[in-house]
Design a protein around this nucleic acid. Structure first.
Length: 807
RNA sequence: GCUCUCGUGGCGGAAUUGGCAUACGCGCGGCGCUUAGAACGCCGUCCCGCAAGGGUUAGAGGUUCAAAUCCUCUCGAGAGCACCA
């Protein structure tokens, strides 16, 4: 049977009839926004894309048949580094490369037969789209959530651009794996840190995978502690430190400042050995993140000679060091070092022969504490801590913080790990940042009416080493007039991180062709927030965090009336190559879905992907089982003859019951994204039906086709129309089961002794414990298993399941 | 180092969430159909045992009438973060 032929036929008909065009409102139906993360136009679809798009379409089709008005759009995340890098490698203009890929990938996507509304397609590299990306930038700018600063940033020497914190993986560039270095450069940032608390709190109410929420929580990294002032002796300067272990302050034997600390610039503190310190600062600056990490085991630092800091709790004078194991961007950029209770301080103190003073001890009130071979970080009681001695660390932190606040030398404070989102890129293939520099007026945002700032079609799009965008070479682009005073001015030449484009695209689908607004508020209201969002877990702290941030900003600006973009979220697993490695062209382990579709048909491929295993698990691609699905579909195709050749129909209560049980099982499984067990239930049903051919009526057969429709949209449509139905099966409503009919009249009672199965027996459903007990004790097997001298201690009865005799 | 997943036949995986372990599919074996094969159909297929029966969810303990499921430790695989004070 050539399924490919049927599939092409229906795809053509659906396209011609605009069958999947979405209406914003259908009376009597609730809207349901079903969204799959839009693809990056990298070249061709691989089987991983199919795994993302095909099973999710099963869910969408099921929801549609269940009575919802579905929005299931598609588009392309078209700007960005990888496309640009790939284009450069092939010596093609990024635009040509990207649009060529979009064309191929669209064709491939169509061959899946998904219910996408192509009239709503969006492409983020389209000026009609990025006009609004630039508009978003301006809204954030107005709200004071965008700023520019010159500071060390993650620089990828191969991509010639800065990267956001989220795009640096273990000190390496997310895209090309080059070692990222720190480079002082002018950059634009979004103040995502202002939203750290909201981003954290609102996670609680989201229907998202728990691990994804955990990842975001860790990324945001809330940490409650105390900020303390340490005065410098004979000086007006103070060093502020942040700690979560205030209880250990009597064990503080020195302070450490990060090399980036502002008090270290130009020898403000009047240090005696500034030459030496300056040398150290310069060295630290040139270290990459990775180098700094690699040196974890071998910490370095320099003492600031000639100054001492004063511990406010005991007025002890302690030395101050600069060391790059302290981070400049976290907390206050300085810490109090307690070697006895912090492993990093412990290592440093050992190396520089600094005192290690234990103030938390397990043995309290015994005065003898064990000698430390590493930092002691567990719980105990305070020792050698003046009037705080004897307290638990928890209690001590409370009381010490009160003491600090009373004496005005410190206060409770909260720090977050998350850093501001660096959005500027020194690259060509992105949305230009809508900013103008005027000698007189300074930094001026482009007026909204002048948007979009179009990306010019330049010949020279190669990135440059000096840290400037290729757009800096385009005189036509740079030179402009100041919107405020009209004088000659220059445009910003950096472009935006592609994650800015993708952080709001879900809003645009509600109204993709609007030229006056990013979307009509009525249409936004009709569809958003997204009801079901599906995509890879690799975006947990990138796209998914950025999208939440932008939604919250738009909410605060009153453009939208919801705080979270994606009500429910599901991740699909990753399909690896047959060798168990990540699929990549260089490894040569990429599976081409087109070839599989030619061989088996798209219904078969999508169904096999759904059948392979749990949707969120993935794993190595193993094609051996696809024949099972192929056979299943062939059997369904042949089953039309059962009806045709049927002479007399015999009602069969068991088959009747199985049908209703299958409706229940399939419905619940699709709702829970358990497509594999839903398909297996359909297989069980077909197996039974084939055994009792004469008990299959036309209405049973129709019902089966409806259950099949989300999984195999083409085949089910073909068979449906062969039954002389005029309308499409995809306009039918999802079958409902009769709760009365699925009830089992009998069940197999499991009879256990001490939890081990000894006998099984069919009995009527709903029997009482008494009755079950009687039956169980009368069983020959049970009788012989219990010797006369053994007494029954207890009997456990689980209704309609089992009875357990404890002896 | 920290945070978090996961480990079930030869393979992909089920198990109503603590109540019949191995559903469904692949593969394999046997039989049928066939000149033969392919395809298809039927039967079998966790291990030991002729059987009665016993054992089995990476391994070892524990909780429970009852554990693949909960707890502790060990081993193994994977993901994310990583000097965050």
């Amino acid at each position: 049977m050539d399924f490919g032929k049927i599939e092409k036929k229906w795809q053509k008909i659906w396209k011609a009839k605009k069958f999947y065009k979405t209406k914003d409102k259908i009376s009597g139906k609730k809207n349901f926004y079903h969204l799959v993360m839009f693809p990056y136009p990298s070249g061709n679809l691989h089987i991983g894309h199919w795994y993302n798009f095909a099973p999710s379409d099963i869910f969408a089709r099921f929801k549609k048949m269940s009575g919802f008005n579905i929005l299931s759009p598609i588009g392309f995340d078209a700007f960005g580094l990888p496309a640009e890098n790939a284009a450069i490698k092939r010596n093609i203009h990024p635009k040509d490369w990207t649009y060529k890929n979009i064309k191929t990938m669209s064709k491939q996507l169509e061959s899946m037969g998904n219910m996408y509304d192509w009239s709503r397609e969006i492409i983020t590299a389209d000026p009609q789209y990025y006009k609004w990306t630039q508009w978003m930038f301006l809204q954030l700018y107005k709200k004071g959530l965008v700023y520019k600063k010159k500071a060390p940033a993650n620089w990828c020497p191969k991509c010639h651009t800065v990267l956001a914190n989220e795009q640096v993986i273990s000190g390496q560039c997310e895209r090309c794996d080059s070692q990222v270095i720190q480079r002082e450069i002018e950059q634009w940032l979004f103040k995502i840190t202002d939203y750290a608390d909201k981003l954290l709190k609102d996670l609680d109410d989201l229907d998202w995978p728990e691990k994804t929420k955990t990842m975001q929580r860790n990324w945001i990294g809330k940490s409650e502690g105390t900020e303390i002032e340490f005065k410098i002796n004979d000086s007006e300067f103070k060093i502020n430190i942040f700690t979560t272990r205030l209880d250990t302050i009597f064990g503080c034997t020195y302070l450490v400042m990060a090399p980036e600390h502002s008090l270290l610039k130009n020898n403000k503190l009047g240090i005696n050995n500034y030459e030496e310190v300056k040398n150290y600062l310069d060295q630290a600056k040139n270290k990459s993140d990775l180098q700094r990490t690699e040196l974890q085991k071998n910490k370095t630092g320099v003492e600031l000679k000639g100054i001492k800091a004063i511990n406010p709790f005991n007025n002890e004078e302690i030395p101050v060091y600069v060391a790059d194991y302290v981070l400049g961007y976290y907390g206050t950029g300085a810490v109090m070092a307690v070697p006895a209770h912090d492993q990093r301080d412990f290592e440093f103190a050992k190396k520089y022969k600094l005192p290690i003073k234990q103030v938390i001890c397990q043995n309290y009130p015994s005065p003898i504490c064990p000698i430390l071979e590493k930092a002691f970080t567990e719980n105990g009681h305070l020792v050698d801590s003046k009037n705080f001695t004897g307290l638990t660390p928890q209690k001590a932190r409370e009381e010490m913080a009160n003491w600090l606040e009373k004496n005005k030398v410190g206060k409770k404070n909260i720090n977050y790990k998350i850093r501001d989102w660096l959005v500027s890129r020194q690259r060509y293939w992105g949305a230009p940042i809508p900013i103008i520099y005027c000698d007189k007026c300074g930094i001026i945002p482009v007026p909204e009416k002048n948007l979009p700032v179009k990306l010019p079609n330049v010949k020279n799009y190669l990135p440059t080493e000096e840290g400037k965008s290729p757009l800096a070479h385009s005189k036509k682009f740079i030179n402009t007039k100041c919107p405020q005073c009209g004088a000659q001015a220059k445009r910003e030449t950096d472009t935006m991180d592609t994650f800015v484009c993708s952080s709001w695209y879900y809003l645009r689908y509600a109204d993709p062709n609007n030229s006056k607004k990013f979307a009509d508020p009525k249409k936004i209201k009709a569809w958003l927030p997204v009801n079901m969002y599906i995509g890879g877990a690799e975006h947990s702290v990138l796209h998914l965090l950025y999208a939440r941030f932008l939604t919250k900003v738009l909410y605060d600006l009153k453009f939208i009336n919801f705080k979270e973009p994606f009500a429910s979220l599901k991740h699909q697993g990753i399909i690896l190559g047959p060798d168990g490695q990540k699929m990549s062209k260089s490894r040569g382990n990429v599976i081409d879905p087109d070839e599989l579709v030619r061989q088996f048909g798209s219904d078969c491929v999508r169904m096999y992907l759904a059948f392979m295993g749990q949707y969120d698990q993935g794993g190595p691609w193993n094609p051996t089982g696809i024949l099972g699905i192929k056979r299943f579909l062939e059997r369904i195709w042949n089953s039309k003859n059962i009806i045709k050749n049927q002479k007399s129909w015999v009602k069969n209560a068991d088959i009747e019951k199985l049908f209703h049980q299958t409706i229940k099982k399939v419905s619940e499984d699709i709702e829970n994204f358990q497509f594999n067990t839903a398909i297996s239930a359909l297989m069980v049903l077909l197996n039974e039906v084939e055994k009792h051919k004469n008990s299959l009526s036309i209405s049973h057969y129709s019902l089966f086709l409806k259950l099949l429709a989300p999984f195999a949209p083409h085949l089910s449509e073909e068979l449906w129309q062969k039954l002389e139905n005029k309308k499409s099966i995809h306009l039918e409503s999802w079958p409902k089961y009769n709760p009365e009919l699925i009830k089992e009249k009998e069940f197999e009672l499991i009879i256990q002794i001490n939890g081990k199965i000894k006998d099984k027996m069919f009995v009527n459903s709903g029997i009482s414990q008494q009755k079950a007990q009687e039956i169980a004790l009368n069983s020959e097997k049970i009788k012989s298993a219990i010797s006369p001298d053994q007494k029954i201690k207890k009997i456990i009865f689980v209704p309609d399941k089992l009875i357990n005799i404890v002896i």
